[in-house]
Design a binder for these strands. Structure first.
Lengths: 237, 237
DNA sequence: TATATACGGTACCGGCGAGTTTCGGAACAC
DNA sequence: GTGTTCCGAAACTCGCCGGTACCGTATATA
């Protein structure tokens, strides 16, 4: 119970900027102050997303230390100056790139509602979702050794990758509680992290692929028993 | 040069040697094969363990990319030449250091045997074991981004850190099956990875401490239900 | 048109770190 | 002893990469 709160309101942190435009630091005059009285060619805002996407690709492939600014620029078909006009350093670029990662296909307000916890969880297993998750995990893998020494990056990564997964599971679990399907005294913080934990471990440590069978096994053989739905033969797959 | 060194230093092939803090290498036969026809001062074998330990410390603190040879040499109070006389490159040194990681206090042949699965698992929760596990996880965290591109390192890390954890759990589970405490058609590969997965995730991703309460929660609220021992009130903690 | 800035591309600078060499001294084989 | 190799320490080479400056061109304001 006491540890719940850390994962309960993680949205309170900074990144409210949905637009890929630059963040607060260094740049004296971000989006609103400058362009009013600025002359000359304006920044091409369409380049931002290309650069951030390129940064995430490189990050996922070679990690933070293996990533060079030239790689990102080349992948985005941009000049290095174009990057440094937007972000003051490699670190800031990476922080922005991670912060702007999108859920890509999962909408927290429009989750499957099948009437049963198992149905909801199975319904969330979709190839695009799996692929999106693997990409994010590869990005996280490239950042892990930095998190300990860069609290800002750790915060951003948590809000963009870690927290959303547990949050979705919590919503499904809470619904099941509300409809009386499962008990109401469960350790939701623990149970909501079962699947993220085992998927992450399988990807990063065991280096084995995450497929549908594995995800179904987690649901039927671990999560459902943990919430008291396992003994009935429903989930014998 | 490389061939000679490979035969010379006691690496992964070395048997029970390479204890931390330079245990007596009395049985160290590694210097047997080569020095037959060698003249001059022999390699001081007691330096090897110091260097490997220093490498693991630095690795755990700053990760592979943050680690420099000078850091390791300084921590081991050795000269860089002393390192390069033993390992041809930074990568080889790290591979050897990881391969020589020891379980330090867990002996697979002498596990607790309390008569119940829960008792065995609870008995394995000991502060030294937790600390040892956290150190290994920090080392792993510093290597993750490399594993994808260095299969040899991935292999060594798997054998030294990943596999032993699951193996212990499997032994305990198999015992419980043999004595008829739990069913014999369980997915042991999945269940044996529950605890390693959740501990790893909590350490690396959530960046929260692993304490006794957390480990007990995993056992009582996740693992025991998964093996069919949850509904009885034994583990309600 | 005149001015100012962004664009992709490239050359350049400075620091850092892997790996090598050298040094005075010490430990072993012969 | 004598020669060879090891030791810790420090100086050195060399390539890589973050970051800057500059080019010719493109696109905006006035």
């Amino acid at each position: 119970m006491t540890q719940l709160d850390l994962e309960e309101h993680p949205t309170s942190a900074a990144p409210a900027n949905a637009a890929p435009a630059n963040a607060a630091p260094a740049n004296a005059a971000p989006a609103n102050a400058v362009p009013a009285n600025r002359v000359g060619r304006p920044l091409d805002v369409t380049r931002d997303a290309d650069i951030l996407d390129a940064a995430l690709d490189v990050l996922a492939e070679v990690g933070y230390d293996g990533m060079t600014i030239d790689m990102v620029a080349a992948r985005a078909k941009a000049g290095k100056a174009t990057l440094y006009r937007r972000w003051p350093s490699k670190t800031e670029l990476v922080i922005d790139a991670v912060a702007c990662m999108k859920n890509s296909d999962i909408d927290p307000d429009n989750l499957p509602d099948t009437g049963t916890l198992r149905g909801d969880m199975i319904a969330m297993i979709k190839p695009p979702t799996i692929r999106d998750g693997e990409k994010k995990l590869r990005v996280m893998a490239g950042l892990i050794s930095l998190l300990a020494r860069n609290p800002e990056l750790a915060d951003v990564a948590h809000n963009a990758v870690i927290a959303p997964r547990a949050r979705l599971n919590r919503i499904l679990l809470q619904r099941a509680i509300d409809r009386g399907e499962i008990r109401d005294d469960l350790d939701l913080a623990l149970i909501a992290n079962i699947s993220p934990s085992m998927v992450t471990y399988r990807t990063m440590m065991l280096r084995k692929p995450v497929d549908r069978d594995f995800l179904v096994s987690i649901i039927d053989k671990v999560i459902l028993p943990a919430v008291g739905l396992g003994s009935e033969d429903a989930g014998r797959r």
